[in-house]
Simulated scan of single mutants.
Amino acid sequence: MKKLVLAAALTAAASTAFAGAPAEPIIEAPVIVEETQSSSGGIILPLLILIAVAAVVAD
């Protein structure tokens, strides 16, 4: 009787372990957020530096 119960328990455990094929994982694409800059964003800093240098040289 013990062997029958043990065999039934092992069969039940094995059948649930191999119940189906593993599903493919769903991988979502990462969200890329880009910050937009104004067209004059790259020229402001050099102009400020040029004005500061001109002010120092003028003194």
Rank of each mutant, 00 (worst) to 15 (best):
T16F: 15
A54G: 13
A29C: 03
G41E: 10
I44V: 09
A17N: 07
T16V: 12
G20H: 13
T36H: 05
I26E: 15
I27T: 15
I43F: 01
L48M: 04
Q37V: 12
V56F: 14
L47K: 05
V31L: 09
A19R: 09
S38F: 05
G42N: 01
G41I: 05
S40K: 06
A29F: 06
I51M: 10
I43G: 01
Q37K: 15
P30E: 12
L45E: 09
G41H: 04
A29W: 07
L48I: 07
A21H: 13
A23T: 10
I43T: 12
F18D: 07
I27G: 11
E34F: 05
A23P: 04
G20D: 13
V33I: 15
L47G: 02
L48A: 07
S38L: 06
S40V: 09
A23S: 13
I51V: 11
G20E: 12
A52W: 02
I44P: 00
I49M: 03
P46A: 00
E24N: 14
A23R: 03
I49P: 04
I43K: 05
I43R: 08
L48Q: 03
P46T: 07
I44S: 04
A55M: 07
L50C: 05
E28M: 11
S38I: 00
S38Y: 07
E34D: 12
S39Q: 03
P22S: 08
A29I: 08
I51K: 02
A19C: 11
I49R: 01
I32H: 07
T16G: 14
P46N: 03
A21R: 10
I26L: 13
T36R: 08
P46G: 05
T16M: 12
E24Q: 14
P25Y: 04
G42E: 04
A19P: 08
G41L: 03
A23D: 11
L50Q: 01
S38H: 06
S38Q: 06
V33T: 15
I26Y: 14
Q37L: 14
V33Y: 11
L48N: 03
Q37D: 12
Q37G: 04
V56Q: 06
L48W: 04
A21I: 11
E28F: 13
F18K: 02
I26F: 14
I32G: 03
L50I: 11
P46F: 04
A23Q: 11
V33A: 15
S39H: 00
E34R: 14
E28P: 04
I51C: 05
A19S: 13
T36Y: 00
E35L: 13
E34A: 15
T16I: 12
